[in-house]
Design a protein around this nucleic acid. Structure first.
Length: 649
RNA sequence: GCCACUUUAGCUCAGUUGGUAGAGCAGCUCAUUCGUAAUGAGCAGGUCGCCGCUUCGAGUCCGGCAAAUGGCUCCA
């Protein structure tokens, strides 16, 4: 008998060799139906693999990530089996589970390509395989035999993988006629898969290196119930509706033009209003936090970027040098603002009493992104960073860092961004040559970030090797509607640039000292932030950001003048209005699709005896009844004001 | 940059085996004044992404280029 400890710390006895499924059956028949895999002492394993010793276990169902991983990993194998029978001679790379489903990288037979039609065929085949209820069988195999097996099969990718494994740890999984090199774990058999969808086909380099051959990656997702698939497809549809590229077009926020060039957004009037409001908001916050606005040019001498070290790193991602009629004179469209700000710092000698100096600029930068990387507003070639550089004394670093976190929180709170990840990016200690600066400075910078986050009670994840080449950073990532994660706010500590630009201040000891530099951009970039904001709100912006806050509509032509007066009256209170003079019945003319994008519709003129009254219709809430104009103005100002008051406290 | 798939009116899309383009919405004109998912009639809108090739004839076949989309690599 062995002792099995369950997650609630209760202990049950079983015969040695009991399987996960056996344990599930002993607990309840429903659990036995739902269980997908098992963790044994922290290691996720097959349900059918016997347990021989005392162990702490956890059974995983569809509700656990481990359960879904197992489900999708097995699904990848089923897809591979289907592809092998559909296109014999296909070679297989790797086929893992991912956040939403799985993929398999395959090398198609010479001259073959996959189309949508093929996917439908493969889907059919997969369903057939699933219904066969073939057991998925694990077997351990010696390295020698594994190499022999895949040599016979002619799968060079598997051979490459095996050659890197140690003998004695190699396992195969087989279902039906398909055998794959795999660590597992897997479902007991194929029949768990009830519903599936192959979502798309993409190219992917073997082992992620563009030096290697491009394989075909087939993405798919499977479910244990048909209903779950349907729900997932609905979710995808919903996500498409929120796509910032779609909303941006519909709301006339921004556009792209082939004539202007790819990755270069054109901000339309309404989009510019949105951006301006965000800028105004951040400017106000930054003013409170002691920032000074500066303006620097869009180009800079190549020497500047060579000095900063950015040329080496960004040279290939920059637009080519701009030449002047003068021989040997070379400029670069600026790929970042930091060097310019360093030069502003150097403008005059600084005293320790002057620090911290906080220089802020909405600085537009240009980077040559590879064409395939461009994506709506989230990845562009010209973008505006809400950039600032804080030059401070080492003893001020932590406090300054904390204050930047405060600014980011103010923004996130104002815009209702709750679902973010804070990532501390440190240098890879085993690869120090990738970075510049002394160990001492790195340790100082890294611990300043870690301490600051701890002090804020910020829940963070730490990534080694993700630091900038000049220093560690704290990044804020936000997930969009579809679940893609985007880096927005970033705070970076830098000892390197002050060194390179020979930045100094005179200390209380009358000696020269080196300031520390903090790079920070709470939005990240205006473009990406707007994209995420659009998707986050699905176009229903908070009233203080809305491109058109209030639409004033005269109920008939004879109230046009009055509508204009109402509009002027509100505009004077900094409430943005648009007079819509489509002299038609409002039910027909202001369509719901439009109403989704404006918070308030004011209908004026309906009461001829009391022209001070307007009918109010509010976004998403329908008619609000009639109120006097003064009441309405107060209502709006209260709404806008309360948000801003709260933010700036 | 690489792989795959796209590109037809301002927008969303039809266009069958090659015979010189359609619809709905938006726009404009006229009529309608009817309070919340679309009032009626009419008009106007396109070198079918661009450049070549094949053909008596190309939106349609073939080739090249460009851009968009989904990924890979890379990044704010």
């Amino acid at each position: 008998m062995i002792k099995i400890t369950l997650p609630d710390n209760s202990v049950r006895e079983f015969d040695a060799g009991v399987t996960g499924m056996g344990i599930a059956e002993a607990i309840s028949s429903q659990l036995a139906r739902e269980v997908l895999s098992i963790s044994v002492n922290g290691e996720v394993r097959d349900l059918m693999r016997p347990i021989d010793t005392d162990a702490a276990i956890k059974l995983h169902t569809w509700n656990d990530k481990e359960g879904r991983d197992t489900f999708w990993h097995s699904s990848a194998h089923v897809m591979a089996e289907a592809i092998e029978s559909y296109l014999p001679g296909t070679k297989f790379g790797i086929g893992p589970s991912i956040d939403n489903g799985f993929y398999y990288d395959i090398d198609l037979p010479e001259g073959k390509t996959l189309t949508e039609k093929d996917l439908a065929e493969i889907e059919k085949k997969m369903i057939e395989i699933a219904r066969l209820k073939n057991d998925i069988v694990r077997s351990e195999i010696s390295k020698e035999n594994a190499l022999k097996f895949f040599t016979e099969k002619g799968d060079q990718y598997k051979l490459e993988l095996i050659s890197e494994l140690t003998d004695g740890t190699i396992t195969l999984y087989q279902q039906g006629n398909f055998t794959d090199l795999c660590r597992g774990p897997h479902l007991p058999n194929t029949s768990y898969i009830k519903a599936l969808k192959l979502t798309n086909i993409a190219g992917a380099f073997w082992r992620g290196s563009d030096k290697n051959k491009m394989l075909t990656r087939v993405y798919g997702i499977t479910f244990p119930k048909q209903k779950l698939l349907e729900e997932y497809l609905v979710l995808l549809e919903e996500a498409k509706k929120r796509d910032h590229r779609k909303i941006g077009k519909e709301m006339e926020l921004f556009t792209f033009s082939q004539e202007v060039g790819m990755g270069l957004p054109l901000w339309l009037p309404k989009g510019t209003m949105l951006r301006d409001q965000l800028e105004k908001f951040l400017r106000t916050v930054q003013k409170k936090f002691g920032y000074d606005q500066v303006i620097t040019p869009h180009i800079g001498d190549v020497k500047l970027y060579k000095r900063s070290g950015h040329y080496e790193k960004y040279g290939k991602d920059s637009f080519q040098v701009i030449r002047t009629p003068n021989e040997g004179e070379e400029y670069l469209l600026k790929p970042m603002n930091c060097p310019h700000h360093c030069e502003i710092y150097r403008f005059k000698p600084r005293s320790y009493k002057d620090l911290p100096i906080r220089l802020a600029e909405f600085g537009t930068v240009y980077r040559y992104e590879q064409s395939g990387e461009l994506h709506g507003l989230t990845r562009v070639r010209g973008f505006t960073q809400d950039d600032a550089h804080i030059f401070c004394r080492p003893d001020q670093l932590k406090e300054e860092f904390l204050k930047v976190i405060d600014i980011i929180f103010i923004i996130f709170k104002a815009l209702d961004f709750n679902d973010y990840t804070a990532q501390i990016s440190l240098r890879d200690p085993s690869n120090k040559e990738k970075y510049i600066g002394s160990d001492e400075n790195w340790d100082k910078a890294q611990s300043a970030i870690i301490e600051a986050c701890a002090e804020k009670g910020l829940k963070t994840v730490t990534e080694l090797g993700e630091a900038a080449f000049y220093g560690p950073k704290l990044d804020f990532m936000i997930r969009d509607a579809i679940g893609r994660s985007w880096q927005l706010g970033t705070i970076q500590v830098d000892y390197n640039l002050p060194e390179r630009f020979d930045l100094e201040y005179i200390g209380a000891d009358d000696k020269r000292h080196r300031p520390v530099m903090i790079h920070r951009a709470p939005f990240g970039s205006m473009e990406r932030f707007c994209a995420v904001l659009i998707e986050h709100t699905a176009g229903k912006f908070p009233i203080w950001l809305t491109p058109e806050q209030v639409v004033v509509l005269p109920i008939s032509e004879k109230y046009n003048d009055y509508a204009q007066k109402v509009s002027d009256y509100l505009n004077n209170s900094d409430i943005r209005t648009v007079v819509d003079d489509r002299n038609e019945k409002i039910g027909r003319k202001i369509r719901d699709s439009e109403m989704k994008r404006i918070p308030y519709l004011l209908i004026v003129g309906e009461k001829e005896n009391d022209t001070e009254t307007v009918a109010v219709r509010r976004q998403g809430e329908g008619d609000q009844g009639s109120v006097s104009l003064i009441e309405f103005k107060e209502m709006i100002l209260r709404e806008v004001g309360s948000i801003l008051d709260e933010l700036y406290n």
